[in-house]
Write a protein that binds this DNA or RNA. Structure first.
Length: 276
DNA sequence: AGCATTGTTTCACA
DNA sequence: TTGTGAAACAATGC
């Protein structure tokens, strides 16, 4: 589930709990998660270094070492990854209820994390004995050295209104596919897209190039608001539409039956009455 | 048992 | 050349 809000929570966790700690041991044995690196390459590059800054664009994170003197460590949570540092975690909440619990608990203790070493796909063990773990049941997360982020568009939470209109408001592709294209705009995933389009009352299937300036501005505000709320409430799953779509299948605002279809190759829910 | 799944990359084809 | 859509990737959940 990690989309921009979950990744931002993971980045903040790293910034809060992992910086200024010397790396002693690195487990990079999972060659799929660490592809294209060979086992030992990340360990050789990172051992003895200290993490000094945690950054993010969209769903991609990179952590600097030794004030930028050392290699950077790229981290991606993929479809189901989370970051765990000394037992605290962020990323991939499995449900809205669990996300709320995690926020209320503050320290985020998670019973599922005890005794599941098989799902620790990449580990930094610090000299003080603590550890940072990329925990990922589905193994689609990544840990790489010096990640190439040049193909990413501006972060969805930071982009200016003019830049947003210029980048999103063009092309024949469905609007939803356009805002999920990470080279156009970085950070919007399947659930955040549905929620933001519903809030903006815009149809996911309209051609992106057809939107006028007012509609594009409205969509940008909806993406920002949805992102902000998701960070505050504990994740994308706390979205209003997201919580209603399977439960009763009706629009939470007007009560019309929601439509379920495929847009841009992804399952999409929307209100045919309000989203035009 | 079969289908769906939050993400990204690759490839076929317009 | 651009850009769209499907399939593959790994593994789990319903």
């Amino acid at each position: 589930m990690p989309e921009l809000p979950e990744v931002e929570a993971a980045r903040a966790l790293i910034a809060r709990a992992a910086l200024q700690r010397e790396i002693a041991v690195v487990d990079d044995a999972d060659t799929y998660v660490c592809r294209p690196h060979a086992p030992g390459e990340l360990a050789d590059a990172l051992s003895g270094r200290t993490l000094t800054a945690a950054n993010r664009i969209g769903k991609s994170m990179w952590v600097e070492t030794d004030e930028g003197e050392g290699p950077s460590l790229g981290l991606h949570l993929g479809m189901a990854g989370r970051i765990i540092i000394d037992g605290a975690h962020a990323g991939d909440p499995l449900s809205a209820a669990e996300a709320r619990e995690a926020v209320e608990a503050g320290g985020h203790p998670d019973p599922r994390l005890s005794g599941d070493p098989a799902w620790a796909r990449f580990t930094l063990e610090f000299a003080d004995g603590g550890r940072l773990v990329l925990f990922d049941k589905r193994r689609l997360g990544r840990a790489v050295l010096n990640p190439d982020l040049t193909h990413l568009g501006p972060d969805a939470a930071e982009i200016s209104a003019a830049d947003f209109r210029a980048r999103v408001g063009r092309g024949d592709a469905p609007l939803k596919a356009r805002i999920m294209d990470q080279s156009v705009l970085a950070g919007v995933g399947n659930l955040l897209a549905d929620e933001a389009l519903w809030r903006a009352e815009l149809s996911p299937v309209r051609a992106a190039g057809e939107l006028d300036d007012d509609e594009l501005n409205r969509l940008r505000r909806a993406i920002r608001a949805t992102t902000r709320d998701a960070i505050r409430l504990g994740g994308v799953h706390t979205g209003t539409l997201i919580e209603h779509r399977r439960r009763d299948g009706h629009c939470p605002r007007c009560g019309a039956p929601l439509v379920r279809g495929k847009v841009g190759g992804r399952t999409t829910w929307w209100c045919p009455e309000e989203q035009r």
